[in-house]
C-alpha cells in the first residue's frame, strides 16, 4: 500500500453508509480504486447489527421506532452498535492481496487498529487494542471493529466513541452472559467516551485527522484526500436498496 485515499467525514443515511462501504470494497477489490480510509456519521441515528445476529434478540425495535432510530444489518460479523451523534465511524478497505495487511484475521485487526490506538493515545487517552476486535481505555470499550473479506478486498469498519447519548443505549438488548464476562453490570458501564476521558468535546474532524496521520506513519504511505469515484457512486442505490429490504434486515 503506497498510497491511501481518504474520504473525509460526511454524514449519510444508514443504508447509504452500508452501501458506500460495500461499493468501495467492490472497487478496491477489483483494483478500480486505491486503498481507502473513509470517515462517516449517521443521520438519522441507527443501530447496526452483525451479519449473524438475530434482530429480535439484539434490538428493541419498538424503542427504535418511537425514537426515530433506523436499524441496518452489516455485511460484517460482530455485535450490535449504536450510531448516534458523537460517534465517529470509519471504514478501511484494502485489496486482500496487499502485504500491508496480514492474512491472519486476528493479526489484521491488530494491524488496522494500531493507528487508531496511536491516534487515541496522541490525544491523551490511554488506549490499548483488546482482542478480538475492540479498543479499550482503562478496561472499558471505546471502539468496536468488524471485518469482512469479500470482492477481493479486506473491509474493516468500526466505531469510535467521542460522545454518547446514553439514553439511546436502550435500543440495544444486551445479554447478561456478555456483560458478566466483561465484569460490567450494564452496557453503559462497559463503554467509555473520549469526552469523558479528556474532559472536553472534540469535533469528528479532529479525531479523523489524528487517525489519518497515524495511518500514514504506520503504513508508510502517501495520503490523498479524495472523493468516491463514479464507479462506486453508481453502485450505491442498488446496494442501499438491498440493505433496505425486509429479507436482508430480518434474515436472522
Amino acid at each position: 500500500m503506497d498510497r491511501l485515499r481518504v474520504l473525509g467525514f460526511s454524514v449519510f443515511e444508514p443504508t447509504v453508509n452500508m452501501a458506500l462501504d460495500e461499493a468501495i470494497a467492490e472497487a478496491v477489490g477489483s483494483a478500480k480504486s486505491p486503498p481507502t480510509l473513509r470517515f462517516y456519521g449517521w443521520s438519522p441515528s441507527a443501530v447496526s447489527i452483525g451479519y449473524f445476529q438475530e434482530i429480535h434478540e439484539e434490538v428493541d425495535l419498538e424503542f427504535c421506532h418511537s425514537n426515530g432510530i433506523e436499524v441496518v444489518r452489516r455485511i460484517t460479523g460482530g455485535g450490535a452498535v449504536i450510531h448516534t451523534k458523537g460517534e465517529l465511524t470509519y471504514s478501511f478497505t484494502v485489496c486482500d492481496k496487499d502485504p500491508a495487511v496480514p492474512q491472519d484475521i486476528q493479526g489484521s485487526y491488530m494491524r488496522i487498529c494500531a493507528p487508531i490506538v496511536s491516534a487515541l493515545r496522541g490525544l491523551g487517552a490511554d488506549a490499548v487494542f483488546a482482542p478480538i476486535n475492540d479498543i479499550e481505555v482503562g478496561g472499558k470499550k471505546i471502539s468496536g471493529n468488524a471485518q469482512t473479506r469479500r470482492f477481493g478486498a479486506v473491509l474493516q469498519h468500526g466505531t469510535i466513541l467521542i460522545d454518547l447519548e446514553r439514553g439511546m443505549l436502550r435500543a440495544l438488548k444486551v445479554k447478561r452472559e456478555k456483560l458478566q464476562d466483561r465484569g460490567a453490570d450494564s452496557v453503559g458501564n462497559r463503554l467509555i467516551t473520549l469526552k469523558e476521558i479528556l474532559g472536553r468535546d472534540l469535533r469528528p474532524g479532529e479525531l479523523s485527522s489524528a487517525i489519518v496521520k497515524e495511518f500514514r506513519k504506520h503504513f508508510k504511505c502517501k495520503v490523498e484526500y479524495g472523493k468516491a469515484s463514479p464507479i462506486e457512486l453508481c453502485r450505491v442505490p442498488a446496494i442501499a436498496e438491498r440493505h433496505k429490504s425486509i429479507d436482508w434486515l430480518f434474515r436472522r
Binding site: I75, T76, I105, N133
Partner: peptide
C-alpha cells in the same frame, strides 16, 4: 451470534 466467519 456476534461471532465472525470468513466467508460469512
Amino acid at each position: 451470534g456476534d461471532f465472525f466467519a470468513h466467508p460469512e
